[in-house]
Simulated scan of single mutants.
Amino acid sequence: MTEPRYRLGVLDGDGIGPEIVPAAVAVVDAALAAVGAAPVEWVELPLGRSAIDSHGTPVPDETLSALAETDGWLLGPHDSVSYPEPHRSRLNPSGTIRKHFDLYANIRPAKSFERGNAIVEGTDLVIARENTEGFYADRNTVAGTGEFMPTPDVAIAHGIITRKATERIARTAFELAMRRRKQVTIVHKANVLQLTTGLFRQVCRDVAEEYPEVTVNDFHIDAMTVHLLRRADRFDVLVTENMFGDILSDLAGEIAGSLGIAPSINNSDTQAMAQASHGSAPDIAGQNLANPVAMMLSSAMLLDWLGSKRNDEKLVRAAQLMEAAVAAAIHGGTATRDLGGSASTTEFTAAVIHAMRDQA
């Protein structure tokens, strides 16, 4: 039997996580087998509400230590708003892991599928979101948060932009563009936030000089929302700061068809975490109704990232096969409710694996 070459962590999370994460694992296993790649070793780790019950915390130290020994991991959604105090008021599990491993890049594609309920057909873009600073108070300080109240009637949040963080997300964006259609759009609000997002725009422009083959333009965040709604199919790679990227990626996911098909990875230079862009959907948890596409495609992104880093063509091929099989399943008429179909989570997963055999 072939020995596993990679170790990947599995964190089911809350809500629909225990349904969509195993679905993604099954599709990864099938894809690796189809391309003749060695299987991965799956390392199941506690996280979320079940970890609070078993370990007294949503992110146990043993989970963080084990993740450090893996090549990457799949993170299911969390439902931190339902956690008991004091856990509800603390940094959520995803944020804890991102901060611990300095996963500075959040890469969120938005790609429509034929017969996939898209608002703008032909959408195929990627948002490169800076993940460690900006206006999100849980990410922009070394200790504590960048949000405080000097009096009960005044609340203040710091918005922090640095050259170092902007340079690395800009390079990530331009490297993505070089593998795609060689277009980068910088999204900012430099007409109002002149120093902070003005610095972001300028640093991105500086990095652009290293990539003369890439066409570069820029838009204010408010104008960008309109452009996406009207002509999302004309954009390739968008690079932006943290909060703008969060908002735009949810919008782009819906424009492409549904947040249920919106994947993402969070990565540093050495580690990556596959994480669907949507939430835990507790209202449908345990009913076999959840759309697993985003988790499947996030897992494909992880394989592609790892394959590119390790020069492993089989992993890249497995990722491509997963994407093609998901598209084929939807095109063939199998879809969950959010995409206008009636398939269950397990039925859709079976359809993807079946389509994979035809694609391989």
Rank of each mutant, 00 (worst) to 15 (best):
residue 113 F to H: 10
residue 122 G to W: 13
residue 303 L to H: 01
residue 324 A to N: 14
residue 101 F to S: 08
residue 13 G to Y: 04
residue 191 N to S: 03
residue 313 E to K: 11
residue 9 G to W: 08
residue 233 D to Y: 09
residue 245 G to H: 07
residue 146 G to E: 01
residue 60 P to M: 04
residue 99 K to G: 09
residue 289 L to F: 10
residue 299 S to I: 02
residue 193 L to K: 00
residue 321 L to F: 11
residue 90 R to Y: 06
residue 160 I to K: 02
residue 81 V to P: 15
residue 54 S to F: 09
residue 174 F to Q: 01
residue 24 A to G: 13
residue 146 G to Q: 00
residue 63 T to C: 00
residue 176 L to C: 07
residue 90 R to A: 15
residue 56 G to R: 04
residue 129 R to C: 03
residue 219 F to G: 01
residue 108 R to G: 07
residue 300 A to D: 03
residue 194 Q to S: 12
residue 133 E to Q: 14
residue 50 S to P: 02
residue 126 V to K: 02
residue 1 M to P: 15
residue 141 T to W: 04
residue 60 P to V: 04
residue 116 G to Y: 10
residue 153 D to K: 15
residue 30 A to Y: 13
residue 330 I to W: 06
residue 10 V to F: 03
residue 144 G to I: 03
residue 329 A to F: 12
residue 140 N to Y: 03
residue 140 N to I: 01
residue 16 I to Q: 04
residue 302 L to D: 00
residue 131 N to K: 10
residue 176 L to T: 08
residue 215 T to D: 08
residue 94 S to Y: 05
residue 112 S to T: 13
residue 212 P to H: 09
residue 71 D to S: 01
residue 44 E to R: 13
residue 127 I to Q: 03
residue 65 S to M: 10
residue 1 M to G: 14
residue 113 F to W: 13
residue 57 T to V: 15
residue 2 T to L: 13
residue 58 P to W: 00
residue 132 T to C: 14
residue 267 N to D: 04
residue 30 A to H: 12
residue 322 M to D: 10
residue 199 L to S: 03
residue 191 N to H: 02
residue 350 A to E: 15
residue 210 E to Y: 08
residue 344 S to H: 10
residue 167 E to Q: 15
residue 113 F to M: 05
residue 296 M to L: 12
residue 284 I to H: 01
residue 156 I to Y: 08
residue 121 E to A: 12
residue 194 Q to E: 15
residue 273 M to D: 08
residue 156 I to V: 15
residue 92 N to G: 09
residue 282 P to I: 13
residue 106 N to L: 11
residue 36 G to Q: 01
residue 127 I to H: 01
residue 242 N to E: 10
residue 352 V to L: 09
residue 265 I to G: 03
residue 119 I to C: 06
residue 111 K to N: 09
residue 280 S to E: 06
residue 108 R to T: 07
residue 233 D to K: 06
residue 35 V to E: 00
residue 143 A to L: 02
residue 249 S to C: 14
residue 222 D to A: 11
residue 216 V to N: 02
residue 69 E to K: 04
residue 236 D to V: 13
residue 39 P to S: 01
residue 23 A to D: 03
residue 214 V to M: 12
residue 290 A to P: 10
residue 116 G to T: 13
residue 200 F to A: 01
residue 259 L to V: 07
residue 161 I to G: 02
residue 178 M to S: 11
residue 84 P to V: 15
residue 211 Y to S: 02
residue 203 V to Y: 09
residue 146 G to V: 00
residue 285 A to Q: 05
residue 130 E to H: 11
residue 353 I to C: 07
residue 129 R to Q: 09
residue 68 A to Y: 07
residue 38 A to F: 05
residue 346 T to A: 06
residue 7 R to Y: 07
residue 137 A to I: 05
residue 137 A to E: 06
residue 253 G to V: 04
residue 221 I to W: 04
residue 167 E to I: 09
residue 294 A to Q: 09
residue 228 L to A: 08
residue 246 D to L: 06
